[in-house]
Design a protein around this nucleic acid. Sequence first.
DNA 1: GTTGACATTATGTGCATACATAATCACAAT
DNA 2: ATTGTGATTATGTATGCACATAATGTCAAC
Lengths: 233, 233
Amino acid sequence: MSNTRTHTWQDIHERIRGNILNRTWSPGELIPGEAELAEKFGCARTTVNRAMRELATAGVIDRKRRAGTRVTVQRTRRVTAEIPIIRTQVEAQGLEYSFCVQTKKLLVPNTTITQIMRLRAQQKALHIQSLHLANGVPFIHEDRWINTHTIPEVLKVDFNQTSVNEWLVENVPLTKGEFVIEAVASSKRVAAALEISCGDSILSSERATWLDDRSVTLVTLYYAPGHQMVFTI
Amino acid sequence: MSNTRTHTWQDIHERIRGNILNRTWSPGELIPGEAELAEKFGCARTTVNRAMRELATAGVIDRKRRAGTRVTVQRTRRVTAEIPIIRTQVEAQGLEYSFCVQTKKLLVPNTTITQIMRLRAQQKALHIQSLHLANGVPFIHEDRWINTHTIPEVLKVDFNQTSVNEWLVENVPLTKGEFVIEAVASSKRVAAALEISCGDSILSSERATWLDDRSVTLVTLYYAPGHQMVFTI
DNA sequence: GTTGACATTATGTGCATACATAATCACAAT
DNA sequence: ATTGTGATTATGTATGCACATAATGTCAAC
């Protein structure tokens, strides 16, 4: 037997994962119970439980009380990315970051925006358009609505000093959010801001964020042509 | 005191998270140690540990031995998405899925592809181009390389029955992968396949996947105009 | 003042035990 | 066949305890 190894939960985790990768336990198949594995590996059930829990949250196995544990039949792939604040994104490329606020007005948004942000009719919100630059070259055009009822402090901040992006990330906690990516042909407005040709193919991302059930901000970013977003699987 | 509540780790988790959201403990600030919290909440240290561990993996707090636990100063936002197989994506919209393989050849890829897939010089790989349709309308154009040294079984599969996508997801386990999204102007080749105009703005995603240190597949998908990818924060 | 040895401390983990909970099965009643 | 009921069982969780490990602080030696 090779059971003389250590039995940290990471070890158990790797051994179980190995058995799944090499198809000792195939997708859909029931794998031995915690108690059995604990005996087999010579450790406590708690340790097996910990290892299996990690595998379950990683989506490798499906667990159900009484029914046991099965190797997940993969139907989806989970991808994730850490989206840094724009300043960091620029500086990571060794470029100098700058930004400028182009418009900033408190006004009543159109019905679509009103609905998404769950504002009451005729309620105003803060609308800010700004440009982020890398070494003086337009990098991202930002079109943002901020719910001043959720974040009243925002009205007092001087956004010529700190970018809205940065201020919000550092000062407002979020409970949930949605992030939609799309390829669009640049509009006249956006093309002018980014100094590209109207109709050029660019990436846009729309992000809506929430603090419990109150909307925080709704922002659309238009990236300069060629921008890539990288995720890991 | 309101310490008469239950003390499941989820409860403790929520109470700590509440204290962070309402800024009782602000970003960067040191929060009380496990032992202290355990006493305060009237539960075992293990339970506090479990709650804090979840918060740590969610990126809400940073923990260091001896140094204690701090509320994370947010500098990045984590976004995730579950990418389903294309069939599911189409059928979820209530449309009928179909696909056709356009080319399938075993050949030596160019140097870029060879490098990315870590093939040896002059080693061949399987190149497959196919089209996915929703209700008969082109949906995604797929350009894929498969490493036949990692997955030799692939040569025996009839890809007119099952799509490559589907077969791989169900039959090949992965250990890691990278996923890059970009907005591109459609090339002549892709425009023809998707039945759109050359130069139209479309989303492309390139995905490279690995089984330990051996490459599995390198695939680029070109989505029909207007396609959106949705992530959650 | 710098270095290095050692104590201290907060988190990290393993284990035995007990009980909770959800799903399933077996079997009887209808 | 269907429904209901209770036993069974695998996972889920709480706890006390012990020890491991990584950072940090202290203090003496140089």
